[in-house]
Design a binder for these strands. Structure first.
Lengths: 153, 153
DNA sequence: AAGTCAATTCAGTATAAACTGAACACTTTT
DNA sequence: AAAAGTGTTCAGTTTATACTGAATTGACTT
């Protein structure tokens, strides 16, 4: 049998890297990876010691992940510490965040577009195609989102 | 009539911000925005002076954008400088790059998955759902990509 | 209510990435 | 062939952001 613990820490590091690639803090990715792998609730303190990072970092990472609905804070009977667990729909929040960014970009471009006078024909066409790109992209993510949604929910 | 020049520089800055949000250098975004707005070829030197950045930055930005197929380097008769112009399918390359990142992440997760012994049932289920998420996301982008592709042909 | 324990905040530090500008190599002009 | 023009490279600097750790706040425990 393979060494589960090594697989686990490899996985945690991988997710850290992936997160960094997506523009998220590496530690947040590690937290996500750990909770994903273990499934069961892990305490605030355990996250800090196991990942060997400061409690301050854990605090900001879990808030980030909580805000996006990727993890949830749960209570454990007889325990004073906060515990964290992977959310029921961890990916929905991520997709929604991406969608929001895309929508914002689309709106920014359309704002510029609407300022341009009618004579600026070719420029208008290009900006239009740019905002169309974001529309299409948003549509693709929207589709992914609904697919992810009814996987479980 | 609205002041076109102000709209133009606003747009350029907006695209710079959007690029930064996507994890790309701000200057690369500005270059893209400028070429997008103007449509016609702009010289290497003009990019540097107009955006008020070093020639070194222009060099690396245009290479990045060229590599992704977002812009193209064109010659202008009687001119020694390189000129740059928005590519015919500027968005295709961007999407392809995003897809590649997603595919890589998916594979990483599946690598961990395949290492896990059969007893690790629940963990396997979670990692499977994680890689499924990337599959779904990739499908969404793939769809967007083909839509973008046949907008122009 | 004093003492412990837990999480957050925030000022300071470390790290990573972007950006600069001068040196370089190559090309064209005079 | 010297001079001027052009793009790239890269060592050094700046900037942005992640991270730390000590101070702080609040909530339990005795």
């Amino acid at each position: 049998m393979a060494n589960t613990h090594r697989i686990r820490s490899d996985f945690v590091e991988k997710v850290g890297q992936i997160a960094q690639g997506e523009g998220l803090p590496k530690i947040a990715g590690r937290v996500f990876g750990l909770l994903m792998f273990d499934g069961e609730p892990i305490s605030f303190g355990a996250l800090a010691t196991e990942l060997q990072v400061s409690r301050g970092s854990i605090s900001s990472s879990v808030r980030l992940l909580e805000d996006r609905g990727v993890i949830k804070r749960v209570g454990v009977p007889g325990e004073r510490q906060d515990f964290f667990q992977i959310a029921d729909q961890p990916f929905t929040g991520l997709l929604e965040g991406a969608l929001k960014r895309i929508k914002r970009a689309e709106q920014e471009i359309e704002a510029s577009l609407s300022e341009l006078s009618i004579e600026a024909g070719a420029t208008r066409d290009r900006l239009r195609s740019y905002s169309d790109f974001y529309k299409t992209l948003g549509g693709g993510l929207q589709h992914a989102l609904s697919t992810v949604d009814d996987k479980k929910g």
